[in-house]
Structure formats: structure tokens, C-alpha cells
Design a protein around this nucleic acid. Structure first.
Lengths: 334, 334
DNA sequence: CTGAAAGCGCTAACAT
DNA sequence: ATGTTAGCGCTTTCAG
């Protein structure tokens, strides 16, 4: 059998409460007995179990994301995992596929497990399940998903700014005919990237051609097709902003097929700065999301939320600045 | 406060044990009271907590992997997550970075949390921590990592066969000068891929040129450099087998830089069939690991192991067949 | 400073 | 068919 606090108490000739106290650094225990107890703990290789209805902290959090197999999400998950670990928390990964049923199922499982908090980075931020979750007493923070009008802490990248900077960069390179391919999903982040981008174009005095605004679901081949169409026009764009890196790879494939060289004949700028940006050829100039910082901040807010449980608290919306990463997919037009 | 089994009991006018019984479908309860109890459960929105030392199942498993941000590992994790969920289990993701210290830390956390089992897909399968884990009473199954001489259930792809088939495929295409770039890591899987590949060459009557055997750490740029060297030789190979997809992308970049067209002037065959194979251009012909089946089998074995806890049991080593996926990176030499 | 004892939410004999 | 009760491993008053 596993060794319990009782075993330690017996070994050290004290009561379990004393052991509990030294374990939790509470109360005041004489150095002598403390030493004796720690010794017993070592000898018996005692590992305090976290599973006990008496304990309130499970030291575990749930992470709701669309799909852990999506490279960018995986990187985000890694950031959360790391920051969590540093604070002693484990994370349960929940891939929802943006499916409300799955979402509900996971939320229910997480509640039963008494997780200390949940980070919601899943798509359907507006689903009933998530709303209820937020209004329950479970600490929640939204990550990379904006939910207006709901009392939750939120951590997002400044998507508007990211889009804006992408536009300015392309403008400075001298592009005039600029297209956008955005991910077809009902998601504030994606929308803000586009809005910011348009604003950036506007400020740079570049007209926005609605015919150059395309979208595609999160699917490489569709994005390729869309790009093929876009690039086959007589007045084809000399630069494209793609809101999601995977889709940018589709553009790259389309360009290659049409013998359009990137970046000499077509500039491309992505968003995320996931591994996909680094492995593409040419490597993608992109707007980097501060993944690590976002994960860290999310954990920080979540833990904060656990502390002042039911009390009134100030809602925080943290917006982290993305940054332009210049690589090889964008250059001045010929 | 959360509603407990006591609240339900009170609401339904029965004792808590009766509630417990209907919850667990044990004992025999009259339909009437059953109905009454379920009604109370619904009304109070009671959610049984899994956190109780009385309960033995946490319905949670730990997954030790090198890095969730590695695309292939993420896909494997997703497979495990899905199979787990179907059986009612959540998974705690633990990225070890192949670091023994991290490994130990995570194992300790998982133990404290009383997880029902641990799937080890991490690199240092031979580290002391893992050995101890296996010899403890915690159900464990190794996934994608072979550990000879240890009493554990194991699920692996048949790497030898995969390598073998890759060789045969290239041979059938007519290649004679074939190189190998293998991941530089102390890992049986990788080694077996190479051994199988060599055997495949041998059987096909193709000499093995040791000068064509290269390796690279899991790093795109290094793999590119290695490839550059390999492809700059006068007698450069006409085909390359790469044990790990990420590295294959490095080869692709090198080839492009040297204006060597794939597949017409150079054939490439990878291993894994992760998303990387699909997004590369040209898409990678590759040996697919049966990820889903592996995850499923791992969960199955793990759950099996929980059942016959301490009893004697037969160790199983399950080897799943990989399969050749023909795409666009391998063709007959000119 | 230390310990006894009452819970926490639930399960599992053991009654009734 | 239902209820009583003794734990599970730990925290936390409350007394000494």
C-alpha cells in the first residue's frame, strides 16, 4: 500500500495533524520535531496525495482548445503547460473540435474532477456551455478568444495591431495591389486581424479592393484553390496577407504551381509564427503571437482568480503585442 | 457550495448510500426510488465528484511525451486523448523535453494525483525514473518507445517493416544510389527504421554505401546543412530515406537551394505521416504510422492493466503495421 | 508547541 | 429494498 500521512506520523511519533502542519508550513512546530518528521517522510518516501475532499486544490487545470494536433494550438498548449508546471499545476488537454457537445462533455468531466480552473481557448466561445461555465464559480480565463460582455479575464494578442503592422510592412515594401485571405471562422481574433490590416492599408493610402478579399476554411487544399483563383487574375495582387499560417502554405503551393516566385513576384505575410512559418520554403515573414507570454499571463490570471474565489474582483483583459518577424516571403515588388 | 450526494439524498428522501447505489448501478433499488433520485439529481444539477479517497478511479491518465509542440507528438497525443475520452478518461499532458529531471518531476506529480495509469512516449525510456515507475504498482504502457527487458506493455509501430517498405519502394522505382538521413537520437524506433531500410535495400540487391548514411538532430536547419553536403557530392544519391518528417523538410529546402527538383531529380521518402507530410511541397511520400490505432491500443492496454492490478499478467508487445503513403516526393530516376 | 476529533464527498460492507 | 456506519487521506478548528 502507498504510504500515508499516518505512516509518517507513526514513524515520527507524532500525530497526523502535526505532520500535516509541517507539510503545509502552517502552525508552529519545533525545529526538532520538524526535522524528525521530514526524516520520516524521506525514509518512507512519502508522497502526499492530492486526492482528498479535504484538500481544496487539485493543482490541475483544464485547457479547452479546438485541436491539440493543430500546430499552433499545440505550441500554445505547451506555453500553458510550462507556465502551469512552474506553479505546480498540471494541465488536462481537451480538444473540442469546436464542437459544442464535446465542449459540454469536457466541461462536465473537468468539473467532476474538481480542477482548479479552466482556460478556454476553444472556438465556440459563445456556446451556452462556456457562458454557463463563466457564470459558475469555476475560475476561468479566455485565451486567444474574445467574448464581449462576459465577466471573464481575457488574454489575447493584439490582433488589430498585428494586422495593421502587416499592412504597413507590405506598404513600406512598395506593394499597391494587396490581397487578404482570412480563415473562415466566426472568431473575433481573425476578424480583428483583417480589420487592423485594412486600417493599415488605409493609413498607408492603399485602396482596398474588395475583390482581393478572400477566405478559406482551415484546410490547406481549399486555401490553395482560393489562391489559385486569386493569382490567376490578370490584375493579380503582388502581395497577400494570410490570417493563419496553414493557409499561407496553401498560397505558397498555388504560387509554385503557377510558377510565381515568392518573394520576387509575390510577397506573403502570415500570422502566428508557428513552426509552420519556419519550415515553409521560403520561410514565412509573419506576425508572431507572443505565445509564451500569453500562456504565462493566462496561468497568472487563472491562479489569481482562484485566490479571490467568490469575492468581487476586477475583470482584466490583457492584450499582448504581436511582433513582425521578417523572414523570406516578403520583398519589394519588381 | 457545490451540491453533494447528501443534498440529493435529502431531496429524494433517501439515504446517501441509496443514492450512491443508483449512481453506480449497483445493489438493487426499486424503480420508484430510482426515478425519484434521478429526478433530484437533475433538479439539483448534481455532478458526482471524482475526488474522494473512497473512489479508486480518478479517470485520468498521464501522458509523458517529449514535446506536445512537436507536430507528430501532438497528433499522437490527440489519438490518445480521443481514445481516452471514449472510455471516460482525461489526459494530463507532460512534455518532458527528454529531460530526466523533468520526467521525474512529472511522474511525481502524476503519482500524487493518483492518476489511474501513465502512458510513456518520452525519449529517455531507460531513465531510472521510468524504470522505477514501471516496477511500481502504477499501470504503465510504453508508446512508440521500446524498452527491452522490462515488464511493461508496449505499443509500437513496426519500424523495421516501415523502413523495409520504404527501401523496397525506392528500389522498385529504380533507384540505385540511395541515402539515409536518420534522426540523431538514442531511440530504438529510429534505429529499427534504418535497419529495416538497409535490409530492404539488401534484399533488393542494392549496395549500401556507408558514405550515404547521415544523421541530424531534430532540427530543420541542421538537416538542411547535412543534405546540402550530401547533395553536393558528384555522385550524389538519387533518393533519400529520412527517418523523421521534419528532417525531410530540411532535405527539401536543400534540394531547392541546389536547384535539384523533387521528385524528378531526387526522390524523397519520409516517415510518420504527420501534417508536415501534407503541407510540404511537393507533398511527401511517406511511411505512415498508424497513430490512431496506436493511441487506441495504448489506452486499451492501460485500462486492461488497471483491472488486473497487482495480479500476475501477461506482458503484451503490440506492433502495428505502418503503411506506405504514395504522394509526390518519390518517382523513378531520370 | 502538539494532538484529538470533526469533517470533506463518496464507497462498501453490514445490518435491517 | 434501503439505511447505518466505517473508512479513504488529508485539513482544520479547538483544546490541552
Amino acid at each position: 500500500m502507498k504510504t500515508t500521512i499516518y505512516d509518517v506520523a507513526k514513524e515520527a511519533n507524532v500525530s497526523i495533524s502535526t505532520v500535516s502542519k509541517v507539510l503545509n508550513h502552517t502552525g508552529s512546530i519545533s525545529e526538532k520535531t520538524k526535522k524528525r518528521i521530514w526524516q520520516a517522510i524521506e525514509e518512507l518516501e512519502y508522497q502526499p496525495s492530492v486526492v482528498s475532499s479535504a484538500r481544496k486544490m487539485m493543482k490541475t487545470i483544464g485547457l479547452l482548445i479546438p485541436d491539440i494536433a493543430n500546430p499552433f494550438m499545440a505550441e500554445m498548449a505547451r506555453a500553458v503547460e510550462d507556465s502551469g508546471r512552474k506553479k505546480g499545476f498540471n494541465v488536462i488537454v481537451c480538444s473540442t473540435d469546436n464542437n459544442p457537445v464535446r465542449e459540454e462533455e469536457y466541461i462536465s468531466m473537468l468539473k467532476q474532477k474538481n480542477v482548479d480552473g479552466i482556460i478556454v481557448a476553444t472556438g465556440l466561445a459563445n456556446s451556452q456551455a462556456v457562458r454557463e461555465l463563466i457564470e459558475s464559480d469555476m475560475p476561468v480565463v479566455m485565451l486567444s478568444r474574445d467574448v464581449p460582455h462576459l465577466p471573464v479575464d481575457i488574454v489575447v494578442a493584439d490582433d488589430f495591431k498585428g494586422g495593421y503592422e502587416a499592412a504597413v510592412h507590405l506598404a513600406q515594401l512598395g506593394h499597391k495591389k494587396i490581397a487578404v485571405i482570412s480563415e473562415k471562422i466566426n472568431n473575433t481574433s481573425i476578424k480583428n486581424r483583417v480589420i487592423g490590416f485594412k486600417e493599415g492599408l488605409h493609413v498607408s493610402g492603399i485602396p482596398i479592393d474588395e475583390a482581393f478579399m478572400a477566405d478559406s476554411p482551415y484546410d490547406l487544399s481549399v486555401s490553395k484553390e482560393v489562391s489559385l483563383k486569386l493569382l490567376s487574375r490578370n490584375d493579380r495582387p503582388t502581395a497577400i496577407f494570410v490570417t493563419t499560417e496553414l493557409l499561407a502554405l496553401g498560397v505558397l503551393q498555388a504560387a509554385r504551381q503557377l510558377h510565381i516566385t515568392v518573394p520576387s513576384s509575390l510577397s506573403l505575410i502570415g500570422f502566428d509564427n508557428s513552426i509552420l512559418a519556419a519550415i515553409s520554403d521560403p520561410q514565412l515573414t509573419t506576425i508572431a503571437q507572443p505565445t509564451e507570454e500569453m500562456g504565462e499571463k493566462a496561468i497568472e490570471l487563472l491562479i489569481g482568480g482562484m485566490a479571490r474565489e467568490k469575492q468581487k474582483k476586477v475583470i482584466q483583459r490583457v492584450m499582448l503585442s504581436p511582433s513582425l518577424i521578417v523572414r523570406d516571403s516578403a520583398a519589394s515588388p519588381l
